[in-house]
Design a protein around this nucleic acid. Sequence first.
DNA 1: GGTGATTTTGTCAATGCTGTAGATATTAAG
DNA 2: CTTAATATCTACAGCATTGACAAAATCACC
Lengths: 111, 111
Amino acid sequence: MKGSYLGELEELILLTVGALFDEAYGVAVMDEIEKQTGRSMNVSAAHAVLRRLEEKGYVTSRMGGATNERGGRRKRYFTLTAVGKKALDESFAFRNELYKRIPKMAFNFSL
Amino acid sequence: MKGSYLGELEELILLTVGALFDEAYGVAVMDEIEKQTGRSMNVSAAHAVLRRLEEKGYVTSRMGGATNERGGRRKRYFTLTAVGKKALDESFAFRNELYKRIPKMAFNFSL
DNA sequence: GGTGATTTTGTCAATGCTGTAGATATTAAG
DNA sequence: CTTAATATCTACAGCATTGACAAAATCACC
């Protein structure tokens, strides 16, 4: 199966789209990621991932209208789909499970 | 900074190396991943990742001697380094933190 | 006790998917 | 028409995955 797992950044961005709820557009996602993780990021990086997530069916997008901000192009808003949320839940549960299963290593032993 | 994050599979395999402790060689890692995740995997996939992890300093490797098994080439054993364990701990803590910070989304709302 | 088949494992080479950056186009307000 | 906010395009480095092949060790037959 191809593209059946969620990449590191894909998971992060999917999570952020969910968190920003109805304000999830490219730049906002990028800013939020930078703020939360300290990881510097380019808008096109965010968009590339968002587009891929849309292809996978984890988010949908729609164009917004004009706003009362200074100016600028219309925003493309992204929304988490039920499938996307499911993927996120599973990813989280799965990793947690895996870490839990390894008590002799993960947090109890040191080199 | 390049290669400064831990890919999805890299995290999984690093975790597995820690879990297998003194029995972490290519085939064993592959088997364990397949057993734990159901994800089918090729030996060379495991080795490619292990080599990258070694380049990053997250694991070290040494060749083993002959064993009393049927036959076969000498095993290359991998060991988690302190740096590797730290990366794993941080990766885990960080993601957990992120999921926690997003109560309005991660587990409390549905579409 | 050699010699080759068999088993277990590692290495190589090639390819597609993910992550990242820079440059450019579009839309709207001033 | 200049400036600001966003999106899109193009290109490339790094991660994930596969298939084919090489190496080392035992087994079994003679």
